[in-house]
């Protein structure tokens, strides 16, 4: 989930985020009743074709499946043991295609476009007096800080290993949490320093840079 956005300008990058999300939902629902091996194979092939059309490194993005490998294997085994292994194959095909399609949307949509597309879903929050910008910002922050937290953890691990010889320990969780909390404080301060989560009340377009 970390290497999300794949910079590029392919056809899939250019499609509007909302259209991509709707297409994904439609395809997902349409594919669910399908049991035909060949139809699903065709869908999978088309999906892979879409990945390769993203340009350099496009097909590599299929690596998003890797963490799902174990789960897919278990699902297949369950089918094989309890029923028909062919049904297992079909189920795996369907899941793989859907995961890949969802991932395709993720890697070709910039986060702010994605948030813009789902923002209407947060609109009911304004009835409670909450700004719909806040959940959007929260999601953005998770994406921004996931890699940073990983690097914090890896430096903690290095510090531990350099003095203990052991690779890792549950004991690192405490300091890791503290560092994450300290980081949250820093981000809050950074946000405040630029006007807070809701921005300034008045619109001031005099600052907008324009091409001269």
């Amino acid at each position: 989930m970390i290497s999300l956005y794949l910079p590029g300008a392919s056809w899939c990058h250019r499609l509007p985020a909302r259209l991509k999300l709707i297409l994904l939902a439609v395809v997902s629902m349409a594919v669910f009743p399908v049991q035909d091996f060949w139809i699903l194979s065709a869908l999978l092939a088309l999906t892979l074709l879409a990945y390769s059309s993203l340009g350099k490194g496009g097909l590599q993005q299929v690596k998003a499946l890797r963490p799902m490998g174990a789960m897919l294997a278990i699902i297949f085994l369950l089918h094989a043991v309890t029923g028909d292994w062919r049904e297992g194959v079909v189920t795996i095909e369907r899941l793989t295609a859907l995961i890949l399609l969802a991932n395709l949307v993720t890697i070709t949509t910039r986060m702010d476009d994605m948030m813009e597309a789902v923002m209407p879903l947060f609109a009911p929050l304004s009835w409670l007096g909450l700004s719909p910008r806040k959940p959007a910002l929260a999601v953005t922050l998770v994406l921004r800080f996931a890699p940073v937290l990983l690097s914090v953890y890896s430096s903690l691990r290095e510090a531990y290993q350099s003095r203990s010889g052991k690779r890792t320990s549950w004991r690192l969780m405490g300091p890791f949490m503290l560092q994450a909390l300290a980081m949250a404080d820093n981000v809050a301060e950074a946000l405040t320093a630029r006007g807070g989560a809701e921005g300034f009340g008045a619109r001031d377009t005099s600052v907008l840079p324009v091409r001269n």
């Binding site: 702010d112 953005t140 630029r194 619109r203 907008l208």
Partner: peptide, 19 residues
């Protein structure tokens, strides 16, 4: 830095001012 990409980071200041 608050945002995942550079462009978003710069654009944030402008949306803060109502753009």
């Amino acid at each position: 830095a608050i945002f995942p990409t550079v462009e978003e980071e710069i654009a944030f200041g402008l949306t803060q001012l109502g753009a």
